[in-house]
Design a protein around this nucleic acid. Structure first.
Ligand SMILES: NC(=O)c1ccc[n+]([C@@H]2O[C@H](COP(=O)([O-])OP(=O)(O)OC[C@H]3O[C@@H](n4cnc5c(N)ncnc54)[C@H](O)[C@@H]3O)[C@@H](O)[C@H]2O)c1
Ligand SMILES: NC(=O)c1ccc[n+]([C@@H]2O[C@H](COP(=O)([O-])OP(=O)(O)OC[C@H]3O[C@@H](n4cnc5c(N)ncnc54)[C@H](O)[C@@H]3O)[C@@H](O)[C@H]2O)c1
Lengths: 248, 248
DNA sequence: TGTCGGCTGTGATTGTATTCACAGTAGCCC
DNA sequence: GGGCTACTGTGAATACAATCACAGCCGACA
């Protein structure tokens, strides 16, 4: 349900042990949030902030915040806390967004066009440099300043723009093939909006963004909350579980 | 970084211990994936499937799949495996999507219109029943069959459509106030696309969908992968960490 | 009808993320 | 300059998630 390097099928062999301690993805996700809040604080003129203050703002425990930061080294002044500006810069450097990087978009449909017009990317260090589609109506046109190329040309265009990240907003059909080509062309990170799982070679990463799945989680939470005081869902319990008998 | 019930600020007191065993959010997220794959299998005519087969298809371990399902009761025939159709239905029931439910959309901008035209919601049990905006240009118009109401009218319109879930695709300004009103009007689940954190009362849930944050994670992963063979990022280590000194 | 193979559901175990709690210290104030 | 305050960074402890491994069972097949 989240970023994954290529994973073996069936029996996922756990070997290939890397020596070094690794930072968890959840930590990285939180770093991103920290930085967002830090930038607001900086705009408001804050110079230093303590772990418990920042933690309160982003909704994590102070200990977790300190642990997250500590996994990248020890910055932070013992008595004054963390320097807002420096910490924001440092997180950018860790995330690799201290310099703007180019991204390619595949699929200029309703969603793709919304993404092309979204300003939030630029603000946080990403630039959609090129768009791709297969629809002859769209190829050659310019959307929000970006030219739309035919997907067949990706091998030429991606290096030209120095692109190493891609957003998939096309269609499920042929998605794996498209992904293979994109990875072969040097893309290392793929953000996938298409509700179809893809696999990538080692060294590449996919992040799935299944919106409907999030709605389903919310539906579950809302529903299970309703029955809390009663005794229906909660957990298994042999006496009439949620699941009806399936042995038939 | 994910769904959260209202959380205390600063010192989050950990008390209010609920007695019952609770299903983890990650389990729920995977259920959603299982169901998607099961529906494809059902369309392909499959009748029964074993945990290791389904696990292979969705990319989890067989043990985890069985554990996930077992937390809702024990279905699954020991010798034949799981009944594809029944299991799909059962998961729908668990998630609360066995009957279509109405959703409200706030903000009919580029993203909002893309969501309105998205067919994936209907296919999986969600119906955007009403849209809201504050722009006089948009209020009163019909988008993909759905009328756009003024946000001021939400207290009247939401009950009318029996809405208990909402999608936020408006603007950061006033978002908390909007959220408060939505929750007060009976909405229990909120999917938030606006890059601004909101808090909700107990019994309500928010799911954040920060696209840029996902790109940042990918950027980190791609970058850290590059230096793996070297010895730069990896982890702290006192000798010149990623973070520069911030004590100034 | 009896035997066997292979699967599920689950206790036990391992692994990982988070929290606790405190030693050590930088800054501040007098 | 010395003492006090309250914060950071981190080992230890806890909580939580994933995996292992197997008892017990079902259905197939003879
Ligand atoms: N709100 C939304 O629209 C929404 C929400 C969540 C997920 N998604 C998913 O995102 C994807 C795009 O959604 P959409 O609403 O824009 O769909 P769409 O049908 O409007 O657009 C898809 C575009 O992709 C193009 N395309 C097809 N194959 C391609 C290829 N090989 N290379 C490049 N372009 C290709 C098509 O020509 C089309 O222009 C879909 O898979 C959809 O399921 C959409
Ligand atoms: N691709 C994208 O467009 C994209 C991607 C990720 C996140 N987002 C976020 O989603 C939100 C919407 O994006 P967009 O591109 O559609 O922006 P947009 O500016 O095109 O649309 C925003 C719409 O919200 C309306 N609005 C403002 N206040 C409102 C209120 N109180 N109630 C109801 N409607 C209100 C505005 O009138 C406008 O029509 C933004 O916050 C944006 O940051 C957008």
């Amino acid at each position: 349900m989240s970023s994954s390097r290529q994973r073996g099928f069936g029996t996922g062999d756990q070997s290939e042990g890397r020596p070094a301690k690794r930072v968890s993805l959840q930590t990285v996700g939180r770093l991103s949030v920290y930085r967002k809040v830090l930038e607001e604080l900086y705009r408001d003129g804050a110079e230093f902030i303590h772990s418990h203050q920042l933690a309160g703002l982003v909704g994590v425990s102070p200990a977790q915040l300190r642990r997250d930061l500590a996994s990248f080294g020890s910055f932070g002044n013992i008595a004054r806390g963390y320097n807002v500006y420096q910490m924001s810069r440092t997180i950018s450097r860790i995330l690799g967004t201290d310099e703007s990087q180019n991204v390619a978009l595949f699929g200029v449909g309703d969603l793709g066009r919304a993404l092309l017009s979204y300003r939030g990317f630029e603000e946080r260090g990403f630039h959609i440099a090129a768009a791709f589609d297969v629809d002859p109506e769209k190829v050659g046109r310019v959307y929000a300043g970006r030219r739309c190329y035919h997907t067949d040309k990706l091998e030429e265009v991606l290096p030209e723009f120095d692109v190493h990240m891609a957003i998939l907003a096309s269609r499920p059909e042929g998605l794996q093939l498209l992904t293979d080509r994109i990875c072969a062309a040097g893309v290392q990170g793929i953000l996938n909006f298409v509700p179809k799982r893809v696999t990538v070679p080692a060294g590449c990463f996919v992040e799935e963004t299944d919106i409907t799945s999030k709605l389903e989680m919310l539906s579950f939470l809302a529903r299970s909350d309703q029955v809390h005081d009663g005794e229906e869902l909660e957990s298994a319990g042999p006496g009439e579980p949620v699941a009806q008998d399936m042995t038939g």
